[in-house]
């Protein structure tokens, strides 16, 4: 039922995304006029707020489900709508941040606080290739962030209060545990990190041993693999949605 899906998609895009954009644009103009902040600082600040807002918004899955099931849209179609939304928003957001970065670069000639430039730029030794690849990488990375947060949001929506707490605690543990283990490894087993270093290089393409430019393709592949896993998990979770009474 393409009509239904398109209608829902358009409605959500218009309602949340478009209005957020307009809101942000207004905020931006007001800031410049009232505070006379420097263009670039302003842009960076707006960009961060905007991104965080988008990420939060992406987590609101239950209401989207309620809306869709009320209109007779199956969970499978809901998943397709969700993905379309995430893709479109990732693309547009990326264009905005990309342009922001460009503007900052051209106006200020400062070093951008873009980690990509620091780590991977120059790999292809060709400005056009590097630039294009940076843009593509940006989109995929943005989508990566979105799909992770949306999947997390979907999972949390399905759980009760207890489940939510357990989930969040586990995620926190998942982040701190590896660091702890590495610390233990370092202190008690060996200071030889060569194995870890090798794994790190393969996954991210960054060479810690020398100052050569990192290989962004590795990182891209890693991101894509994780995205595919997340897409699968998200699908399975979306299929499990039910109305709570």
């Amino acid at each position: 039922m393409i009509i239904k899906e398109t209608a829902l998609y358009k409605n959500i895009m218009k309602r949340y995304f478009l209005y957020t954009l307009i809101y942000m644009a207004i905020l931006f103009s007001i800031n410049i006029l009232l505070n006379r902040m420097r263009l670039l600082e302003n842009l960076s600040q707006i960009k961060t707020t905007y991104l965080s807002f988008i990420v939060v918004m992406i987590c609101f899955n239950y209401y989207l489900f309620k809306l869709s099931i009320n209109f007779g849209i199956s969970r499978q179609s809901l998943y397709k709508v969700k993905l379309s939304l995430l893709c479109s928003i990732a693309f547009i957001v990326n264009i905005i941040t990309f342009s922001t970065n460009l503007l900052v670069y051209f106006f200020d000639k400062k070093d951008l606080n873009s980690f990509y430039i620091g780590l991977y730029y120059g790999f292809f030794q060709n400005n056009i290739f590097d630039f294009t690849f940076m843009f593509v990488f940006g989109i995929i990375f943005t989508f990566f962030i979105f799909i992770i947060f949306n999947t997390l949001g979907t999972l949390l929506s399905l759980l009760g209060v207890v489940g939510k707490i357990i989930c969040l605690v586990s995620i926190y543990a998942m982040f701190t545990l590896p660091l702890m283990l590495i610390g233990i490894y370092h202190d008690f087993i060996s200071t030889d990190f060569s194995v870890i270093n090798t794994i790190f290089s393969i996954v991210t393409g960054i060479h810690t041993s020398n100052n050569k430019c990192g290989n962004p393709i590795n990182m891209l592949v890693t991101l894509i693999i994780i995205i595919i896993i997340m897409l699968f998990i998200n699908y399975k979770l979306t299929k499990r949605y039910q109305i709570r009474r």
């Binding site: 239904k4 209401y63 099931i69 007779g72 849209i73 199956s74 969970r75 299929k239």
Partner: peptide, 19 residues
């Protein structure tokens, strides 16, 4: 999970379905 069948059914219920 069948769009075709679900499009023929409408359930007016007592939950809050709208934003």
């Amino acid at each position: 999970d069948n769009d075709n069948a679900l499009s023929k059914i409408y359930y007016m219920n007592q939950n809050n379905m709208y934003p």
